[in-house]
Design a protein around this nucleic acid. Structure first.
Lengths: 279, 279
DNA sequence: GGGTTGATGGAATGAATATTCCGGCATTGA
DNA sequence: TCAATGCCGGAATATTCATTCCATCAACCC
């Protein structure tokens, strides 16, 4: 008996596997072909079901599923199932889906092409998830709160600094008084000590939360200054007592998170404040 | 012993459950709160993992997971897990469902809703057009050029400053020597005078081009330092004599241009340089 | 400060699961 | 028609899994 029907290593991403199933279907024994057809047509069921439940729906024996997996070089059914699960997993940082959909678009898969497409997709998905999560009422509330403020303090460090610095620029152009905190100049605590309850602040931070941002936000919020927070979890330590918070989940690629969603939200808030000021 | 901690029936859809977990977190015992935090942050792992594997990642005992599920009125862990799985099933229908429920939510399209969706769309269109325009060879060339540099100078002002400041942050994390030019501190010309042909620079500017950026870019390029330019037209005065340039057209909404495309390209270049340095 | 309540960790349990194995069957080639 | 090969169904098995149970611990109230 030969060791395996195919000598190559089994595919680790769903689309490669799918292609392989399609192309090998005609050379497969009857029941195995039946499994291939079912798996291609109902990938979600394969991802979630148990061997028994899938076997029943595909009208084969559970053992056939194991044989099927082994025919494709997997160790067993569970090993194959993992590939189907990865397809649905972690929409915000999924390797396999992205890499394979890349291959369809990009002929030569150079490293740069992969990177480029990866970051583009991360940006698009971030914005997509932003759309799902944010409610318009929150924006209205935040904009109203900021519009009433005398001065708007912008707190953000590290990855969030580009966002606050953009807001600072945009507020400047729109004639809204704002102060950027967290740049290289070191007198931030003093700057923030001028904040009163008649002012407002925007704080942006994602895990791992920059400790300075946390401290500033707490300090200012306990002083009674309302806070608009952009962060990545409802359990973020940044969630303010007085104010509004937005949950923004940025997709990441190779550990680098997109900024598109935060930017889009920041721009919305900025312009909404200016609009609200006009009336 | 009371039957349950809550008398109501447990939520059958993910978002209700999520809200419930968020709102009840503070009244939950320590370990159960820990589970809530993990479950909100990693819903995909909860959907696919086994009780043992999830418990390990959340740093609790498997039995805690069962207790957690029961505290929310579920029969057991598997019952709760089904809710997490349903979220990933039939993703398309879930999307449209959420979208439509949002729309009914936002009966009158308020000004904010229009703004928000406008900026989201602008971001998506920008990235889309970036994909079409940029060629992989350009990225390779730019990355190679930057990878060979001793020091990378980052030139950007006004709207482009968020992009260069992000690159500065990312280069720092990746161990690539870079200098950010164009911040508030005023000694930029002096800084740039240290640039040699063995260095390189990235200059980013869009109409109306900031004069300082133009001057810096020219000065440095005429001194023989190669330049990677991100700008918005092939006729831009920024186009370098030595180096590579990218045309990035950002969609705008109400006169405010998105930054998504520039950011995505900037991230690609940043990581590509770090990758290239490794070999 | 003693007693009570509730939370927690960890082992025990029984169910469910994937996998293996083997006898029978169909198909193929001579 | 007969032998050989490889496929398949279904029972047997060995894991893995969720769940339960109990002892311990901490917090809280009287």
């Amino acid at each position: 008996m030969t060791i395996d029907d195919n000598d190559a290593l089994p595919p680790r991403d769903f689309w490669s596997l799918r292609n392989l199933m399609v192309s090998r279907k005609d050379t497969l024994p009857k029941r195995l072909a039946q499994v291939a057809i079912y798996a291609v047509a109902n990938p979600d069921d394969v991802a979630f079901g148990t061997a028994a439940s899938i076997a029943e729906k595909a009208e084969v024996q559970p053992s056939t599923l194991v044989r099927f997996a082994q025919a494709f070089g997997y160790q067993g059914f569970s090993d194959l199932q993992a590939v189907f699960q990865d397809r649905l997993r972690d929409r915000t940082s999924n390797y396999s889906e992205r890499l394979s959909s890349l291959r369809s678009h990009v002929a030569g898969d150079s490293k740069s092409a992969t990177l480029f497409s990866g970051f583009c997709k991360a940006a698009e998905r971030s914005v997509g998830s932003l759309r799902e999560r944010v409610q318009v009422e929150q924006i209205d509330e935040a904009a109203g709160l900021l519009a009433r403020a005398e001065t708007i303090y912008l707190i953000g460090q590290r990855r969030s600094f580009p966002v606050t610095s953009y807001m600072s620029y945009a507020f400047g152009k729109l004639g809204v008084k704002s102060v950027l905190v967290g740049s290289a100049q070191g007198n931030d605590p003093e700057t923030l000590s001028f904040a009163t309850p008649r002012d407002a602040a925007i704080a942006i931070s994602f895990t791992p939360y920059a400790s300075a941002t946390l401290n500033y936000a707490r300090q200012i919020n306990e002083g009674g200054t309302p806070l608009v927070v952009i962060t990545d979890s409802p359990f973020s330590p940044l969630i303010p007592k007085i104010g509004v918070w937005f949950e923004v989940v940025e997709a990441d690629y190779e550990g680098f998170r997109s900024l598109s969603a935060s930017m889009a939200l920041a721009m919305t808030l900025t312009v909404a404040v200016a609009e609200a000021r006009r009336s």
